[in-house]
Design a protein around this nucleic acid. Structure first.
Lengths: 336, 336
DNA sequence: CTGAAAGCGCTTACAG
DNA sequence: CTGAAAGCGCTTACAG
């Protein structure tokens, strides 16, 4: 494996008896090459198994790396994985390759600042042509803004406070409001809320939609029914168990993302409780849980495709004002 | 965005009043640089926001790209996504960045040969330091073998016929045999089989384990209970419905991967049938389906970690004979 | 400890 | 249509 240096254009040129310039022209499929010369060179390329060194090509100013970076928190979340899939499809179609970077989370469930800095540095050193970023909530250190000054960036799922740029969002507020409305329509008045960070981003919007629906229905939001800052399905399960143990428990529980929904489903199932779950994000096999679930879903693959398309435009040199695309959210109800 | 060329070492050198060589030494944290000089240069680096161009560094022979490629079929499958996560963690820890490439499937559910060739070319042109590949079953065209000659490769989940190399496998045969044994122990004698490709790779091994368990128990494998070549949960659902509609239907169904299991669960659920499902791979919320499911699971993240560790060793120059690592499979039973 | 110079593998005007 | 030459941004012996 890896034995010997790979052949260079110089090797091909010698083998074919032409100059390096000519080899370059053939490899780049330029016009104005004599057909016979072209054939000879192509034969030498094949004979030597020549593959143009992309690092060398890239060195010339104005040449692209044909690489985009996708920065997500954790590929373990189906949202991230499907997003990546959508990105990859569009990227491949447009001639780009995807560099995948995960920020991870620290013990408190927050972004690791140091790791994020490393990632931004890495992208810039590699001169990626563009970046797709699922960002953290804040940009106090100006990390995202600095990145956006040096490379085309499209943000996904949230635009960090204090940053200008393209962003692809979900209809978090609307989806959440309609999902809550559905629960209200089914007669529920005590609705629990199990969610992650409430500060900003998707979590904040989803909670806002929840409140809006309650308000419109003249239902008070009860503090004792709210459980924020859950970061895993295990935590969500415990939080839901707490809710079920209340003297006056909720008859429905709103979950603000898929991990929350999974945890709540388990808690409700174990308790054998007669509680309806309304969850944001898709959860596979929800159909099997008839009579108990309503979901607000969207297509993460499509989010990836749209974001990648926006980025491809930007990399093409578009100087239009920052754009905001919103991917729709649809409700799915299983059972009543 | 992207305004102006990024600063070069030359810019830094001029700003600091030293030579480019000295800047290089400081940036590479070499010894034998006067502390005062180092400080000046570091100040200039910071002032100009200099980030070393990795393409240029890479050009020198012997320099690595610090890039590994991960080639999967489809990130939409949780196995691939978690695998990628494990890979990314080890890669980042070892100073590598991950290039993600998906082969996709064509209409018949097979690998797209053309796309695979493109991918191999892409990796080689980019001079990645190593490749992690979830390969197709065959290597008739010698694609994988050719790749393995030019770069360190670790295969995942299967070693294509006719290729030598490192591989990280699951205990497909053993896990499958034990899962089938469990169904037999519960008294099932008519066990349906819903699976994907039977020809080779994981599918073939899982079927082999199934047969081995039946044989050991003196149970005949009935042709009418076998449903191969299912490629989606929808197809698996239909196949399972077929099984349930037989004059003499199975009392248990063995599913050879997670898509099959999801489809079978839906079919059994819809039919309200009293059928136990034994499935290979994890399926979230299986716990909610108590009394109906046994799963053979393993940790795809761990598969990724192990494969990446093997690759890091190879990239370090290890010339040891090809290695084979097997990740264990554990049974989980829900309900009886 | 530091600098001048060569060279990595390409691309691209510039001549011819 | 083709080649010689310069140059992209680095690293690395080689002197000093």
């Amino acid at each position: 494996m890896g034995q010997g240096r790979p052949p260079t254009m110089r090797d091909v040129a010698e083998h074919a008896g032409v100059s390096v310039s000519t080899v370059s022209r053939v490899v780049n499929a330029e016009k104005y090459v004599d057909p016979a010369t072209r054939a000879t060179v192509e034969a030498s390329v094949a004979a030597l198994g020549f593959l143009r060194n992309e690092s060398a090509r890239t060195l010339r100013p104005g040449q692209r790396t044909a690489t985009i970076a996708l920065v997500v928190e954790d590929l373990t979340n189906p949202f991230s994985a499907e997003l990546a899939h959508g990105v990859e499809i569009v990227a491949a179609g447009a001639g780009y390759v995807v560099l995948l970077l995960s920020t991870g989370r620290d013990a408190r469930g927050d972004r690791d600042r140091v790791r994020e800095d490393e990632i931004v540095g890495e992208l810039l050193r590699r001169r990626v042509d563009g970046v797709l970023m699922v960002p953290g909530a804040e940009d106090r250190e100006g990390r995202y803004a600095a990145l956006a000054e040096r490379a085309p960036v499209v943000f996904v799922d949230r635009l960090p406070r204090g940053v200008r740029g393209d962003v692809v969002l979900l209809d978090n507020t609307g989806g959440s409001r309609r999902l809550t409305q559905l629960l209200l329509d089914r007669g529920h008045r005590r609705i629990g809320y199990v969610g992650g960070d409430r500060g900003s981003g998707p979590g904040a919007r989803r909670h806002a939609g929840f409140r809006a629906a309650l308000r419109a229905a003249g239902v008070r939001e009860e503090r004792e029914l709210l459980r924020f800052n859950q970061h895993s399905s295990d935590e969500a399960r415990t939080a839901t168990e707490d809710l079920l143990a209340l003297a006056h428990p909720p008859t429905a529980v709103f979950c603000d993302n898929n991990r929350m929904t999974v945890g709540a489903l388990l808690a409700v199932h174990r308790a054998g409780a007669d509680v309806v779950i309304g969850g944001f994000d898709a959860v596979e096999l929800a159909e099997v849980l008839v009579d108990r679930v309503a979901l607000a879903t969207y297509d993460p693959v499509d989010v990836g495709r749209q974001a990648a398309r926006l980025l491809v435009e930007r990399m093409g040199g578009s100087q239009a004002a920052p754009r905001r695309t919103t991917v729709p959210v649809v409700l799915a109800e299983f059972g009543t």
